[in-house]
């Protein structure tokens, strides 16, 4: 892979499969556990996460490279990233609520849920640690969102089947979900040799 596009594209696919933010890094578990009961709602949340990850990674990259680095303030990145994410999500929610009733019902309602989702902040921090350029960061954010979407969809599908299964009482709810998440993570490790990012 020698062209300049190759690296960002690798990052994009790696962030979906081999370096899935949820299954490889176990980030964003809270909403993953609580909203994965039904496929319909997890689709809404998945789209919202994808959108927010892609856009905030872009925004945070710009803030980091054009404000924090020149001022030598990169140690403030945690607090700044969080503020940017929170404000951005809030504004997007207000806009969606105003503009489209359908979009608000399917996606907007989930936005406040993910403002403080650690996977979103995680994506912004990874891109800084790994020193991605603008395009890579955007594709990394977008891919991570899709990966998270994929994981929650799969889990919702499994949990709908689980409704008819007999689960030991102590394992009902979050317990069995975490075990299944672990198995899914193992399955995703099967992709590990195909692509890799560091």
């Amino acid at each position: 892979m020698s062209t300049t596009l190759a690296v960002p594209v690798t990052i994009f696919f790696a962030s979906i499969f081999t370096n899935n933010i949820l299954l490889a890094n176990y980030l964003g578990m809270c909403s993953f556990l609580s909203v994965s009961r039904e496929i319909k709602t997890s689709v809404g949340l998945g789209i919202a996460v994808t959108f927010v990850m892609a856009t905030t990674s872009l925004l945070n990259w710009l803030v980091y490279h054009y404000i924090l680095i020149p001022l030598n303030l990169d140690y403030l990145r945690f607090i700044v990233f969080i503020m940017v994410i929170a404000a951005f999500v809030q504004i997007v929610e207000m806009i969606i609520e105003r503009v489209s009733e359908g979009l608000y019902a399917s996606l907007g309602i989930f936005l406040p849920l993910i403002t403080v989702n650690c996977a979103i902040l995680g994506v912004s921090l990874f891109m800084v640690i790994r020193d991605y350029d603008l395009l890579s960061s955007f594709l990394f954010g977008f891919g991570s969102g899709l990966g998270w979407f994929l994981a929650i969809m799969a889990m919702a599908g499994i949990r709908q089947k689980l409704k008819r299964a007999q689960i030991p009482r102590g394992l009902e709810g979050a317990g069995i979900t975490l075990i299944i998440t672990g198995m899914m993570a193992l399955a995703f490790m099967g992709f590990a040799g195909i692509l890799n990012i560091t």
Partner: peptide, 15 residues
């Protein structure tokens, strides 16, 4: 001062 200023400026802008 710089860090306090930067945080305040970004926060105010967002607000």
């Amino acid at each position: 001062l710089l860090s306090v200023g930067a945080i305040s400026a970004i926060a105010s802008l967002l607000a």
